[in-house]
């Protein structure tokens, strides 16, 4: 019985969810800090490209949805703290690659080496990728275990839906 493997006591689960909410709010974006950031068209366009690339690479490498989502939050958090000069497309590419690699290291069991993440236009040296990973880690102050909506989905499905456990593969 699968529900035996989850936290059995609903009180404990409620407590978990509360802790998760607190953490999500603490690590999340603080809009008052972001207001000064000028989001110009270049950034918007580059961000869309990056998201498209992350989603595509996620599915081709067989990563979970959580991993893709996490990579995108790293990407956004990074840009909310550090600016990338206009027209530096390679830097955006490198950033998306580092974010996906870091998300995979947090979430996946088989983590391919970053050089397996193929990029169409640029070919980065592994040393450069590692430097970028470290830059992202430092910029995000190593707070990489962000809470994603995926952590709440099963709880909400169960609470809203007659207290039956959802099928295991609702999200994976």
């Amino acid at each position: 019985n699968l529900s035996d493997y989850t936290v059995s006591n609903s009180e404990e689960e409620e407590e978990c969810i509360k802790l998760l909410l607190d953490r999500e709010i603490n690590v999340g974006f603080q809009t008052h800090n972001c207001s000064h950031i000028v989001i110009d068209n270049w950034i918007k366009c580059a961000r869309l490209n990056a998201i498209a690339w992350i989603l595509k690479t996620r599915s081709s490498l067989g990563f979970r949805f959580q991993t893709g989502y996490l990579a995108m939050t790293y990407f956004d958090r990074f840009l909310s703290r550090r600016a990338i000069d206009s027209d530096k497309w390679w830097a955006m590419q490198l950033l998306s690659m580092a974010c996906l690699s870091l998300a995979a290291k947090m979430e996946e069991y088989r983590v391919p080496s970053p050089s397996e993440f193929q990029l169409e236009e640029y070919n980065f040296d592994s040393k450069v990728i590692q430097r970028m990973e470290l830059l992202v880690l430092n910029t995000l102050e190593w707070r990489m275990s962000s809470v994603t909506p995926f952590a709440f989905i099963h709880y909400f499905i169960r609470t809203l839906g007659n207290h039956h456990s959802p099928p295991r593969n609702v999200v994976s």
Binding site: L102, K105, M106, S126, Q130, L137, W142
Partner: peptide, 17 residues
């Protein structure tokens, strides 16, 4: 270098922090 920052380091620091 080939694998970048080891996942053990990332997990250890990000969880403990």
């Amino acid at each position: 270098c080939k694998n970048g920052v080891p996942y053990t380091t990332i997990r250890e620091i990000s969880m403990l922090i």
